[in-house]
């Protein structure tokens, strides 16, 4: 009888620990996947964050971009630090999240819309040379399909899937 009681208590404790952990995890998932949670995360992300590894080195996407645009590291730095471009990035990221996680097909921006955001971002960037401006605008027009594919085809798995 005593042994049975001990087994029951152990079982209850295990269930309690698991249930509390699941509840805590679920609370995080709810927080992160609601509109405010997504906004909170997306509004923190900058172009530089996406292109730099944790050890401070640039990732392969950075080098692909500068090779495609045929720009120097300094010019890339100007683009990465552009407040206007970062604001446009956040607009795009919100649509990517909406499209991929909420399965909202209407959220996906068209190539023209993405292109217009880039042009607007570039035109509102301070301390940018006309040459760099023209390079980005010209190349964006050429590669807009690739940009759109890159943004909307990145594999994003919902946390709940795990």
């Amino acid at each position: 009888m005593k042994n049975k009681k001990i087994i029951l208590v152990v079982l209850i404790v295990i269930l309690l620990i698991l249930t509390c952990t699941i509840a805590s995890t679920y609370a995080v998932i709810i927080n992160v996947t609601n509109k405010n949670g997504i906004l909170e995360i997306v509004n923190k992300i900058t172009i530089k964050d996406l292109l730099i590894n944790d050890n401070g080195t640039y990732n392969s996407t950075y080098y692909n971009v500068i090779n495609t645009l045929d720009i120097t590291d300094n010019e890339a730095s100007t683009l990465m630090e552009s407040e206007s471009l970062n604001e446009k990035l956040q607009i795009v990221l919100n649509t990517v999240v909406d499209y991929k996680i909420n399965n909202n097909v209407t959220a996906k921006l068209s190539n023209d819309e993405i292109y217009n955001l880039i042009v607007d971002g570039i035109n509102n960037t301070n301390n940018i040379t006309e040459e760099l401006k023209n390079k980005v605008i010209t190349k964006s027009s050429e590669y807009i399909n690739d940009v759109s594919d890159f943004l909307y085809d990145i594999e994003v798995s919902l946390l709940e899937d795990y």
């Binding site: 923190k44 992300i45 990732n59 392969s60 996407t61």
Partner: peptide, 11 residues
Amino acid sequence: NVTHEVNLSII
């Protein structure tokens, strides 16, 4: 590990 094309550390 979702993607290695961009750094998702902030997220």
